[in-house]
Design a protein around this nucleic acid. Sequence first.
DNA 1: GCCAACGTTGGC
DNA 2: GCCAACGTTGGC
Length: 155
Amino acid sequence: MAYWLMKSEPDEVSFDDVLAAPSKTVAWFGVRNYQARNFMRDQMKAGDGVLFYHSSCAVPGVAGVAEVASGPYPDASQFDPKSHYYDPKASEEQPRWISVDVKAVEEGSYLPLSEMRTMPELEDMVLLQKGSRLSITPVTAAQWKAVLKRMRAGG
DNA sequence: GCCAACGTTGGC
DNA sequence: GCCAACGTTGGC
């Protein structure tokens, strides 16, 4: 079982939005970076752990715990000319972009980025490396454990 | 709004 | 295949 951190702008999809969705599950769409796509396509499995991260907001940080809830499938928004995520080079026959379903599991207490930077267990986390801006990054079992411990302990 | 860092594009 | 120009990300 693998662990991931996935970034979402809460103005687009917040962790609360996922909690409120039917079956607490949403399609993760709009990834337009090959490295992040390849993680979804080649490595993600249903049941993998997901840290749901809020980016580009007042207090960026991990908002909740989720899990991968499907295998990879074509991202529908790439085919929709009206979508912000439309890709004219993608076709139904040859899709370029991938979605997976993500299911909210546990809310916990919000873990701000500023606090993550103070946690020694997270020193090597991909998210925290200089210049790192991938929207999907791997998380080690030790990092996962440290984050969950902190989120369950409360602020 | 700024800007560092990174990814993509396209001319050559 | 190189690399300059451009676009995007995302914290601050």
